[in-house]
Design a protein around this nucleic acid. Sequence first.
DNA 1: TTAGCCTCTTTCCAACGTCAAGATTGCGGG
DNA 2: CCCGCAATCTTGACGTTGGAAAGAGGCTAA
Lengths: 206, 206
Amino acid sequence: MTRSKARGYHHGDLREALVASGRKLVEEKGIRGFTLRECARRAEVSHAAPAHHFASMDDLLAELVRRGFAELTASMTTEAQRVADDEPAARLVGLGVGYMAFAAANPTLFQLMFSREANHIEAKAGDEGAASLRRLLAAVLDDVLAEASDEDRQQAADFAWATMHGFITLVLEGEIGGRDSSKALKARGLAALAAMAETVMRFARP
Amino acid sequence: MTRSKARGYHHGDLREALVASGRKLVEEKGIRGFTLRECARRAEVSHAAPAHHFASMDDLLAELVRRGFAELTASMTTEAQRVADDEPAARLVGLGVGYMAFAAANPTLFQLMFSREANHIEAKAGDEGAASLRRLLAAVLDDVLAEASDEDRQQAADFAWATMHGFITLVLEGEIGGRDSSKALKARGLAALAAMAETVMRFARP
DNA sequence: TTAGCCTCTTTCCAACGTCAAGATTGCGGG
DNA sequence: CCCGCAATCTTGACGTTGGAAAGAGGCTAA
């Protein structure tokens, strides 16, 4: 439904076009290389046009972050549901697989979502997304660690999130598995998630 | 030895001055807010002066990253040595404490060191630093898991690094312990490190 | 002393984000 | 049907940025 051809003075759906080109641009040029003018250029629109849809560049980035979190949680739930329900540890691993899959597919956006800048940039966009992510994790852990104390559940949540976030972050930065094949890398990731799930399950019986 | 007063045409030690002001600036303004001109301004020097000491802005950032990694590994060894040698798990926790302490004291620099941009920016500065960090971790694990297979040791290293990196990253971003006291946060961090160490120790006996 | 090199300044350029003002369009009320 | 208005987009401008080029100043070794 791209009306790229022979559009008149009005674009038709500039907002979406900017989000789309912005997303590509972030992955191509990195966070520091992102440019509002280039974004407008790719949407075939003047450099000042975005201002009518986003108050500032940070406002556009905030929208990207918002959608990123929505996709991230979607990827996690999808992957977790793919697993038999009678194996609780596997659901936890599934969450991690979904988490890492999204990050691997959108490395720069992922970094932006968890960037220190983000906190200053949008203040809210990230918080909402992170909150729903936290709920998702807590729901699985509440199920798995039904009999544990609240403190233990929190520690388990900290630990689970830290492991999957840390692993994929280090992979994206090239610190882990720099020259591994994709398959070997996935295996290392699954091993880390398995160790994480084992550790979390231990919180069930002190 | 600051010769800030009545310096002549020549600065005397501009390179170090730029590194110093650059480091402060990064923490103050964030990665995106960092500016070479502001850096020069704080060193009381014209905006083109830095070019004679750093080929580009990325070159200065690379130097910051290089020094950051040196400090990070130093912080880890210091903290690990503070521990009785007969308690191997404690040394592992010590490494994590040193890791997190550095990150907490230099949050933006830490983010820069492990930023996707960094990879593109310096290509080498980060790799060397990360390599020595990896060696540090491997040395402790080789000791602790002397009888484990190479694959197990690698998995243990992945897991240990991922846990400490992920936890402190999420803390710095505000995702973990957003409104906890500093003391409570440290407790949560130690809990995560303890759980990590316990799991790593399990790699010793399959 | 003086020649030469290193350091720093000045000036310039293209590109950036943002603002203000004008041009163009689509839409709803007469 | 059309007319005016608001939303959308363009043009042009301002201040700032990173970087290149060229000149001025000062240190040092011969």
